[in-house]
Every structure is written in C-alpha cells, then in structure tokens.
Design a protein around this nucleic acid. Structure first.
Length: 617
DNA sequence: TCACTACGCGCCCTCTGCTGGGCCTGT
DNA sequence: AACAGGCCCAGCAGAGGGCGCGTAGTGA
C-alpha cells in the first residue's frame, strides 16, 4: 500500500485508544453498561468470548470508561486499555447483547466492549511492544447487524494495515480469519480456550470497532496486543473451527519453513524476497525513476515506461480485431473481452448477469442486496457506487438545495398516505412508492385519475368553484390555463391570436384541430390525405419552434404571466422588456411567448405572417 | 530483473426509466 | 368554454460498459 495511504490512515485512526502499562492486579468483576468484567483468577484458565449483538455505533453513547487489565512486565503480561462504550437502553434490551468478554488469565484481565470485537493471534515472534496497534478500515456496509453478531471477520481480508511503532510484526488477517471467526455460545468459549492452550505465548489481540469520522463510510478497528500464558486441557466442541485453526497453524508452519517475508507496515506477506522488496517500495516516498518530459517521478521502471508512453502516445499492445491499442497487456486483454471475445468470467449467482471484471459484478450484486454504501453528506440519498453519488452531488446546487433539501419545519405530508417528512427530497422519494394507479378517486362520481391536479380540477366541476379570477374583469375560471387564455385574448395588447390557415381555402382558425377538421372536409379526398399528413408535420414544426424558446425569453413571459395574478407592475415591465427584446411581430405561442427561432426570423425581417405561412407549409 | 497476468479501484460515459410540470388537444 | 387526458421536456437516478492506472503473483 502506498505511503501516501498510510499517512491518510494514520490520520483516520486517531481514535485508537492508547495502551497503558499498569501494575499487575486483579480487577473486580462487574457488569456495567454493556461491559462484561471477569474476576481475576490468578491464572489464565479460559477465555470466554461472547458475541456482541447488533448495536452499532448509532447506539453508542459518548461516555467512555477505560478498563485496565493488569500484567507485570516481568511476566510479559500486558495491560490493555480498551475504550468502552455504553449502549443505549434500547440496545441493551436486545437479546444476547453480551459483549466480548474475556476471562482473566494470570493477571490479565480484560474487558472488551462494543459491537464486533474479536481476537486475533499473531505470528509467533519476538516480543512486541505495548504500543502496537492494528488499524483496520473497512466499508461500513460490510457489517450488517447480523454480521456483527457473529463476528465474521473475514471481511477484514480487505484493506488491512498494521501500524507498528517498534516491532517488525506482521499478521495476515486473511490467515487469521479462521481463528477469529467466533460463534456465539459455549463452543466458542471452549474453542478459544483450546486455542489458547495450543498457542502458548502467542500473542493475543483484541479488536474493537468504532465508527470513523461522522461522514466517513468506515469503521475503525483497533487491535491491541497482549501475551497470554500457556493453557492446558481445555475441551473443544467446535470441531470444525478447531480443524480450521489447526489447518491455519499448519499452514503457518509450512510458511515458516518456506521463510515468508512480512511487511512491518501492513499485512503484506510474501514468500519471495523480490516481491517483498518491491512491495516495501510502496511504503516509501522513494521514486527514483524520473520522467524527463514532465519531471514526474515513479517507483519502478515499468511505471515510468507506462507513463512516458502516455506522453509519446506509445501503445505497444494493439488489438488485432480493431484499431484500439493500450499501454499494458492487461488492458488489451480486458478490451478484447469487452469488445470481441465477450468472455465474462464473473457470473452473478442470483441472475444471469455476468461481467468482464470482478468489480462490476460486485457493483451489480448491490442491485440485488439493495446495499447503498455511498451516503450523501447533505441529504438522505445513498448510492450503490461512487459515480452515482458524485453525479447526485451536482444536484446540491443553491436552487436545487432550497427546493429539495432544505429542512422544513412544517410537516410535509405524503399525498397518498399518512407519512410525514421534513425534507422535500425524502418526501418525493417516498411518494414514488405510490405509483402507477388511478389512485385519485372522486367522491362524487366514478371519475378516477393518476394525477392529483386532474382530480383537483375535476372536483371543481362538482363544487362549482372557480378560483382563478381575472383581475381586469373579475371573470372567474376553474382552470388556470383558461384564465391565461382569457387574459391574453381580452386584456393583453401585445397578444396576436394564432391563426391556422386552411391550405385549401385560406380560411383561418384559432385552433389547429379545428383547422385540421375543416381541411379534411375541404377539397378532395386526396387533399384530405395530404392535409392530414400536413397537419402532423405542422404540429411537429410548431412544437419544435416553441421548444426553442430560450430561458431568458421564458423569464420575460413569466413576468408577463404574473400580471394574471395581479402584479401589474411586473406585467408592464415584462411587456416592455418583451417589446424591447423582440421588436418584431410576435409568434402567438403559449402565454404570448416568443421564441428564439422567432427572434432570429424577426432579425432577418421575417414577419409573423410569414412564419405562419411557413408553419402551414 | 523483467514481462506477463490478474486484480482492484476509480472515473466517465451511455442507455433507460420514472416523475412533475407546462402545455396542447380531443371531446 | 369547459373538462379530461395526453404529449413533451427537464431533471434525476439505476444499471451497466469501457478504460486508465497501480499493485501483486509468478515464471523466465
């Protein structure tokens, strides 16, 4: 892992609790606020581990208690100070809320708390200092409630780093997974005990999890080490786990014979010195290979060569089936799978989906699981991949924010049910769950419709309500658009009525549909057919022209519209602006809007009449 | 040491579907 | 004129394809 990543991680893991060295002494057992404490028996006899139930960080209170298991330096017993976390009363009420508890062993007394602690054995090796931590960051979603309950640490195979101040210890969590995969119940405890017996003087690590930064998607695990004494004669009932443990141990012995190389910075191990050395370079800032074109430096010659190729455009790996070429052979192979061979080795177990890349399958699986690990920091939205979140973030512009994501003190009620929200976005998302039905039913007749606005308008036919009043003549209307039409027709000096001319007789109509109906009767059957086709084209053309209206022009039209709502000053201003911007004749579109196309035509000396003629043709 | 290969992560893009709202059309 | 319904568009999100690049395993 790159050195830069280490620095980042070190910043992230500031929550790691410090170990403390304390005189050897027993601690009084007690159980308090979700922390199980075991009495000091003077020698290690058993190690109990009970799994922690659910209660993730959300359930954790801020209060902390430091638990100080004591050992003596002489006996190589370590004290651990582990952060304790208190759960809410609701969480405590959960069944099997028992936390990982560890019985004392020869003065070692430890209390471990929190959701998802566990144990790790490290490789046998020299004594480690007390100040040894393993910080692990994983995607939070990897830990469902149930997963936490059974401490499935296999997830830790990913993204594991060991930060050790003064030791050369490395541990493969992947290897250790079998050892730390604890199950609830006595079997686990017994198993752990046996493991202890098997692993005299091996180091025992405690793992605690805690939420990372509030906005982070990570859980930070802290692993603190301690030594335990040899144990004897502990029964084992979980044979499978025992076998697993033995298997792991053998594997490790085999590896020992092969001489494995362990990175002291992260979990990396390798049986080859060359691989190990290459890996170690990733932990340094040493980049001896300089690009002479841009002075950028690289760790390896290969990286430099690939980089230089981006300057020169050199792509040595060319596809035989197309013109594509790539810097690396791997890219070519992948390209061929995508474009030519269509080989998709990664298959979904739940559907027929298959992908070229594993990461694509992983992304796809989220569509089955519903997993949305990428949480928007500004609203309730969460996405299934990083790009969607990034795309979503664009919506958090100032207008958009006020419209959708501003907190509303007033309750925003779902129009279809009793749900209540305080964020419009959440409301909209919820309301999407009510879809595809004529869910609006009239109380007075059998009418039903999909849209509430249609129902609102319909209800007025029963009540007689006419809420839209013309401010110029006090005439009332049931629909706003009717008022708009009325106002344009009778009170707007700039309004020029639409005239649809019959191409046969030249007769004018205010509505295209009327003209079309007329044209079907006007002239021969051939004319009728032609008129029909022409009508469609005319409509299309008209819509195309109207669509070209610019935003600024719409703003002007909006100001004009406000006149219908009583803002005469705004109406006058908009009207003046409209006249100034578009001095020519107006195309009578909706609300008297002119269009960009019209403006262009006006600039070219094209009149409204010419436009209408053009539309007719 | 190098080259090949595989893997993983990230980025960007396209296609598709849904929804609300403005507006138009048929009756 | 009034009503009801449909069309169209913008905006957004879901899903997936494709590629760039860094790193690790391994054989020559």
């Amino acid at each position: 892992m790159a050195a830069t990543e280490i620095s980042v991680l070190s910043e992230q893991f500031t929550k790691i609790k410090e170990l403390e060295l304390m005189p050897e002494k027993g601690l009084k057992e007690e159980e308090k606020d979700g922390v199980c404490r075991e009495k000091d028996h003077g020698s290690p006899r058993e190690l109990e581990a009970a799994c922690t139930s659910g209660a993730l960080q959300d359930s954790v209170l801020e209060e902390e208690v430091e638990l100080v298991p004591a050992t003596s330096e002489e006996s190589e017993k370590h004290m651990l100070t582990l952060q304790t976390v208190h759960f809410t009363s609701e969480a405590v009420e959960l069944q099997d809320m028992s936390l990982l508890s560890i019985q004392q062993q020869e003065g070692v007394q430890v209390m471990v708390q929190q959701a998802g602690p566990g144990l790790l054995w490290l490789e046998e090796g020299p004594r480690q200092s007390l100040q040894q931590y393993v910080a692990i960051s994983i995607q939070q979603e990897l830990y469902s409630l149930q997963e936490m309950e059974v401490l499935q640490f296999h997830a830790l195979e990913e993204n594991v780093m060991v930060a050790s101040e003064d030791s050369k210890l490395a541990v493969s969590l992947a290897e250790s997974a079998g050892l730390i995969k604890l199950q609830e119940g006595q079997e686990k405890n017994q198993l752990l005990t046996e493991r202890l017996a098997e692993r005299t003087k091996e180091q025992l690590f405690f793992v605690e999890t805690m939420s990372g930064d509030e906005r982070s998607d990570e859980i930070v695990l802290t692993i603190s080490n301690l030594n335990v004494e040899e144990q004897e004669d502990q029964p084992t009932t979980d044979q499978a786990d025992v076998e697993k443990a033995k298997s792991t141990k053998n594997q490790r012995k085999t590896k020992g014979a092969k001489r494995t190389f362990h990175c002291d910075v992260c979990m990396f191990t390798s049986s080859r010195m060359s691989s190990f050395n290459r890996h170690m370079k990733t932990h340094t800032n040493e980049k001896p290979h300089l690009c002479h074109l841009c002075l950028k430096t690289f760790r390896t010659v290969t990286l430099l060569r690939n980089h230089v190729n981006t300057h020169t455009g050199t792509r040595p790996y060319k596809c035989n089936d197309c013109n594509m070429a790539f810097v690396t052979s791997g890219e070519l192979v992948r390209h061929r799978r995508y474009k030519h061979t269509h080989e998709k080795p990664f298959k979904c177990s739940m559907c027929k989906y298959a992908s070229v890349e594993a990461s694509k399958l992983k992304r796809h699986v989220r569509s089955h699981t519903g997993e949305r690990p990428f949480q928007c920091c500004q609203c309730s939205y969460a996405s299934r991949d990083t790009y969607k979140l990034k795309r979503h973030m664009r919506t958090h512009s100032g207008v958009h924010m006020r419209n959708l994501h501003a907190y509303s003190a007033a309750e925003l009620k779902c129009r279809y049910c009793s749900a209540v929200f305080h964020e419009r976005y959440a409301l909209i998302q919820h309301q999407k769950t009510h879809k595809n039905e004529k869910r609006f039913k009239c109380e007075h007749c059998s009418y039903a419709c999909k849209q509430e606005r249609h129902m609102t308008a319909h209800i007025r036919t029963h009540t007689g309500e006419k809420p839209f009043t013309c401010l110029s003549c006090n005439k009332c209307f049931r629909q706003k658009q009717l008022l708009n039409v009325h106002f344009r027709k009778y009170h707007d000096a700039n309004f020029i009525p639409t005239v649809y001319k019959c191409s046969k007789c030249g007769k004018g109509f205010s509505r295209w549909s009327n003209m079309h109906r007329h044209s079907e009767k006007c002239g021969s059957g051939e004319a009728k057919s032609a008129a029909s086709g022409k009508g469609k084209r005319t409509r299309k053309r008209k819509q195309t022209i109207l669509r070209e209206a610019t935003k600024g022009q719409k703003e002007a039209a909006k100001g004009w519209k406000e006149a219908a709502n009583g803002d005469e000053a705004a109406a006058e201003e908009a009207s003046a602006l409209k006249r100034e911007q578009f001095p020519g004749e107006m195309l009578p579109g909706a609300c008297g809007e002119t269009t960009a196309r019209v403006k262009e035509d006006v600039d070219e000396g094209v009149t409204c009449e010419m436009l209408l003629n053009m539309m007719d043709k």
